[in-house]
């Protein structure tokens, strides 16, 4: 009973605190604090409800149990992380985004190809590409190569479409200016059109980070060696070891946010001139 009261109290305190903070003048610190308080309040309520109502660990483990499991199985989590994220997702991401970028630069030279590939690429980007996973697992075997292939297929089209769009972002006046400088097509590409395309490219890269993680994990549901995050999740669900599943999800969340943040950080250094970046500082 007291756990339920505790959860309720946490909710009231957290909510009141946030209302109070929201009415203050927003300095950088307060802006950060509000969502963090909200998250902590949710965690506390979760903990209180799980303990108060005695929810079985098979249904929903408490945050503290997840934290204990997370701390205790560091080596397994690390092994899975290396298998899925570094070998599978990262290599597929780099190869996929790199070749999509190069393809976009090449087809930019041929308006005919551009008009043909852009609708098709847009179409493919909306398809449930994850479905390719069983086929690619069959072609490339159970190890990380097949996961990298799934990631490749998933990230290729969003990045391609965004880059092609970005390369068309320079307007006529800017192109005319380059022409008056007697710039060669290569110079125009490197000095004007590629920089102008960067906001679009990074938009594609950001979409691709989440897709890459999803691709690598889901591909493991179709077959994998006995390590990897997707394998561990489906195996642990089978054993009803839900605290392990949640620990893997915590890892996935941390990696996902870190990858997204990393790309956003690079974006900020590369496209520092763009209005959306300047406004913040």
């Amino acid at each position: 009973m007291q756990w339920i009261i505790f959860a309720f109290a946490a909710w009231v305190v957290g909510w009141a605190l946030n209302i109070w903070l929201s009415n203050m003048t927003l300095k950088g610190f307060v802006r950060f604090a509000i969502p963090i308080i909200f998250g902590l309040t949710l965690l506390t309520i979760w903990e209180g409800v799980v303990r108060g109502f005695d929810v079985s660990a098979v249904l929903l483990p408490s945050p503290s149990a997840i934290a204990v499991r997370f701390a205790a199985s560091g080596s397994i989590l690390w092994e899975d992380f290396v298998q899925t994220m570094v070998k599978g997702a990262l290599s597929g991401y780099i190869i996929g985004c790199g070749s999509a970028f190069l393809t976009a630069v090449i087809i930019d030279r041929f308006p005919f190809l551009q008009r043909g590939l852009l609708p098709v690429g847009n179409f493919v980007a909306a398809l449930p590409v994850v479905g390719m996973a069983p086929i690619l697992v069959m072609w490339f075997g159970f190890d990380w190569q097949s996961k990298a292939a799934v990631v490749f297929v998933m990230v290729f089209f969003p990045v391609l479409v965004n880059t092609v769009q970005g390369l068309q972002a320079s307007n006529a006046m800017q192109l005319d200016l380059m022409e008056t400088y007697a710039a060669s097509p290569q110079q125009t590409l490197v000095k004007l059109r590629l920089p102008m395309a960067m906001p679009f490219v990074f938009n594609g890269l950001k979409i691709a980070t989440t897709l890459a993680l999803i691709g690598a994990i889901v591909a493991e549901f179709f077959g994998s060696p006995i390590r990897g995050m997707g394998f561990r999740i489906s195996a642990s669900v089978g054993q009803l070891a839900l605290d392990m599943v949640w620990a893997e999800i915590v890892v996935a969340a941390i990696v996902g946010s870190a990858a997204y943040g990393g790309v956003a950080l690079i974006e900020r250094t590369v496209t520092f001139w763009h209005p959306s970046q300047r406004a913040r500082s």
Binding site: R31, I217, I249, A252, S257
Partner: peptide, 17 residues
């Protein structure tokens, strides 16, 4: 102020897992 950051953060998580 409190929910919006989490809505955005929730999408960097590979939820399909």
């Amino acid at each position: 102020l409190s929910v919006m950051p989490w809505v955005i953060a929730s999408q960097t998580i590979p939820i399909l897992a």
